[in-house]
Design a binder for these strands. Structure first.
Lengths: 183, 183
DNA sequence: TATAACATGTAACTAGTTACATGATTGG
DNA sequence: CCAATCATGTAACTAGTTACATGTTATA
């Protein structure tokens, strides 16, 4: 699946593995992420399968870059994937909610402290999606052709992040109140 | 991590791998899931490490069951895990949102049809959390000691599921409206 | 009459993580 | 002077998925 993340990100400009990680961290991290080591391995595989092509870009004073660009085969494959219908909800893993699920076995003080910490953490996340991301999306618009519809989808996924973290914060507030009553 | 899911679920009653999968599907599936094959492998490992103990329960007409119970070592380890503070947000992977992110490359008709399908799908998910899960939680309360606080946490995670899917449905509605305007 | 539920498990494969290895330049 | 950024990659390990293998009984 990382395969398609990389193919998708390479649609407009060629990029190095390092670039791709930067881009992922700045744009898709709240619904898709990857470690550099895995990105490098996947790019290598993608090139072996001819979905991308790479060349070395020499640099002075800093390491040379290996820059990848999408091939026609790669673009076709991406389009095929996008045209498939997804008919099952995504499976989610939230390790912290799993922990919470067993908090019947934990101390009340620990539980409350943990939920407050999460509240603080997720409030900051939400603020990021409201306060910093819109500006970054605005800046990125310059990098795509003006008739391109990509920014609409960037904005929609940003909005998803905003709503997700807002929901999480509401849930934490509600849950803290509940636990104060019921424990 | 599945390790802790299994240890946690074995706190009250001994269960077989098959039971554990049933229980997971009915209670934690919206934030933690696992395939049977992986559950069997993990239980085996857990027994080798002495976190659980198993015995065979012969049955007539149907296959014998291998039933696992938590050891003291297992319970201690679980408690240690619950007492750790989690200070980073969970990393999430939503493959369908990744697809959506690249829908600049897809046909408008396909996009709208896909979002309508998701809307239908997630509305049903949400209804499940509102209409069927509360009854199941109520029924499960009988299986734990009356002074046990577990049901409070079951109800809170159910509520998380309800809020999550409601948020998802709202996002889909908002996004559909937006796309009708902007594409 | 077929398929779902009950029940356990292994083998092969795929994907992802952590740790290691290297090394210059820039900013605080 | 130390940490971060830039930049690429491999090796070992961990976790998870898919497919295979077996066989009865209850239900639609």
């Amino acid at each position: 699946m990382l395969k398609y993340a990389l193919l998708g990100l390479l649609r407009h400009q060629p990029m190095s593995g390092y670039d791709l990680e930067q881009f992922i961290n700045a744009s898709t991290a709240h619904f898709w992420h990857a470690k550099l080591s895995q990105i490098y391995r996947t790019l290598k595989q993608l090139e072996a399968d001819e979905y991308v092509l790479s060349h070395i870009e020499p640099q002075e004073g800093r390491p040379d870059r290996r820059v990848y660009r999408l091939t026609d085969k790669g673009r076709d494959d991406l389009k095929g994937w996008l045209a498939e219908y997804v008919t099952e909800p995504d499976e989610i893993k939230l390790p912290s909610l799993l922990r919470f699920f067993f908090f019947g076995e934990a101390e009340k003080e620990h539980i409350v402290a943990q939920l407050r910490l999460w509240h603080n953490m997720y409030s900051k996340q939400q603020a990021h999606f409201v306060e910093v991301l819109p500006g970054q999306i605005e800046a990125l618009k310059a990098s795509v052709p003006h008739n391109d519809t990509d920014p609409v989808f960037w904005e929609a996924t940003r909005r998803f992040g905003e709503m997700y973290y807002a929901m999480y914060v509401r849930w934490l507030e509600e849950t803290l109140r509940q636990l104060e009553d019921e424990l």
